[in-house]
Amino acid sequence: MADFIDGTENVTVHGIFNWIRLLIIFSVITVIGNYIGYKHPIGEAFIGMGILSLITLAGVWMERELPFNISSILYISIIGIVIALPGMPTSEFVLYYVSKIELLSIVTVFLAYVGIGMGKSWDEFKALGWKAVVITILVIASTYYGSAIVAHIILVLTGVPAA
């Protein structure tokens, strides 16, 4: 699956077909996990994943075709925010269907995909040496603890008792 997209593809029929194929696989796995884990209706979750996939395709296309040096994640975020803004004609539809998809369902599939990608470049990772392993562990641990600290502060500020 990691061979479909290498990040450098131009917008061609073949490149778009590869993105669509990858997003369909990603969506099916996410919807199944979403149904099993959270019991959201499959049909509504598929519509939500379709919306997210279309936003992703638009963002990737914009990154490759517009003359600005901006990452696709920024385009994807802006598109998502704009179509979900209160007062936009798409807002209720988008919010309803996208809310049928739990973030953890998406993240689980995404991390599995990243793991597959890492497995394919394991030799390159090993060539970086033990320092890369230490840095990786520190980054992951720092991200986890930083998120936990921020969450704890927000919970305390909102009046949720600390455990």
Results as ranks from 00 to 15, higher is better:
residue 41 P to S: 11
residue 41 P to E: 13
residue 42 I to H: 04
residue 42 I to W: 04
residue 43 G to Y: 14
residue 43 G to L: 08
residue 44 E to T: 09
residue 44 E to V: 02
residue 46 F to T: 03
residue 47 I to W: 06
residue 48 G to P: 03
residue 49 M to R: 05
residue 49 M to L: 12
residue 49 M to V: 01
residue 49 M to P: 00
residue 49 M to Q: 07
residue 50 G to W: 02
residue 51 I to H: 03
residue 51 I to S: 04
residue 52 L to I: 05
residue 53 S to Q: 04
residue 55 I to R: 05
residue 55 I to D: 02
residue 56 T to N: 13
residue 56 T to D: 09
residue 57 L to W: 10
residue 57 L to D: 03
residue 58 A to P: 06
residue 58 A to F: 10
residue 58 A to W: 09
residue 58 A to G: 04
residue 58 A to R: 11
residue 59 G to T: 08
residue 59 G to P: 10
residue 60 V to L: 15
residue 61 W to N: 10
residue 62 M to S: 13
residue 62 M to N: 14
residue 63 E to V: 10
residue 63 E to R: 14
residue 64 R to C: 13
residue 64 R to I: 08
residue 65 E to H: 01
residue 65 E to P: 03
residue 66 L to F: 10
residue 66 L to D: 09
residue 66 L to K: 13
residue 67 P to C: 02
residue 67 P to N: 15
residue 68 F to S: 07
residue 68 F to D: 10
residue 68 F to W: 15
residue 68 F to V: 10
residue 69 N to R: 15
residue 70 I to F: 13
residue 70 I to G: 11
residue 70 I to V: 12
residue 71 S to I: 09
residue 72 S to T: 08
residue 73 I to V: 15
residue 74 L to P: 02
residue 74 L to D: 02
residue 75 Y to M: 11
residue 75 Y to N: 05
residue 75 Y to V: 01
residue 75 Y to F: 15
residue 76 I to K: 06
residue 77 S to F: 15
residue 77 S to V: 13
residue 78 I to D: 04
residue 79 I to Y: 08
residue 80 G to K: 08
residue 81 I to V: 11
residue 81 I to P: 00
residue 81 I to E: 07
residue 82 V to A: 14
residue 83 I to V: 14
residue 83 I to D: 06
residue 83 I to E: 05
residue 84 A to M: 14
residue 84 A to F: 07
residue 84 A to V: 01
residue 85 L to I: 06
residue 87 G to A: 07
residue 87 G to S: 11
residue 88 M to D: 02
residue 88 M to A: 13
residue 88 M to T: 08
residue 89 P to W: 02
residue 89 P to V: 03
residue 89 P to K: 06
residue 89 P to Y: 03
residue 89 P to I: 04
residue 90 T to L: 11
residue 90 T to I: 00
residue 91 S to R: 12
residue 91 S to Y: 09
residue 91 S to N: 11
residue 92 E to F: 00
residue 94 V to P: 07
residue 94 V to W: 09
residue 96 Y to H: 15
residue 98 V to C: 03
residue 98 V to H: 02
residue 99 S to E: 12
residue 100 K to T: 10
residue 101 I to G: 07
residue 101 I to Y: 02
residue 102 E to M: 09
residue 103 L to Y: 14
residue 104 L to P: 00
residue 104 L to G: 03
residue 104 L to M: 15
residue 105 S to R: 02
residue 105 S to V: 06
residue 108 T to A: 12
residue 109 V to M: 00
residue 110 F to W: 09
residue 111 L to V: 08
residue 114 V to N: 06
residue 114 V to M: 14
residue 115 G to D: 12
residue 115 G to V: 02
residue 116 I to H: 06
residue 116 I to L: 13
residue 117 G to N: 14
residue 117 G to H: 07
residue 117 G to P: 00
residue 118 M to A: 15
residue 118 M to S: 12
residue 118 M to I: 15
residue 119 G to Y: 11
residue 119 G to D: 06
residue 119 G to S: 07
residue 120 K to Q: 15
residue 120 K to E: 15
residue 120 K to W: 10
residue 122 W to E: 07
residue 122 W to I: 15
residue 122 W to K: 11
residue 123 D to S: 14
residue 123 D to Q: 15
residue 124 E to V: 04
residue 125 F to K: 05
residue 126 K to F: 01
residue 126 K to E: 06
residue 126 K to R: 14
residue 126 K to M: 08
residue 127 A to Q: 12
residue 127 A to Y: 05
residue 128 L to D: 09
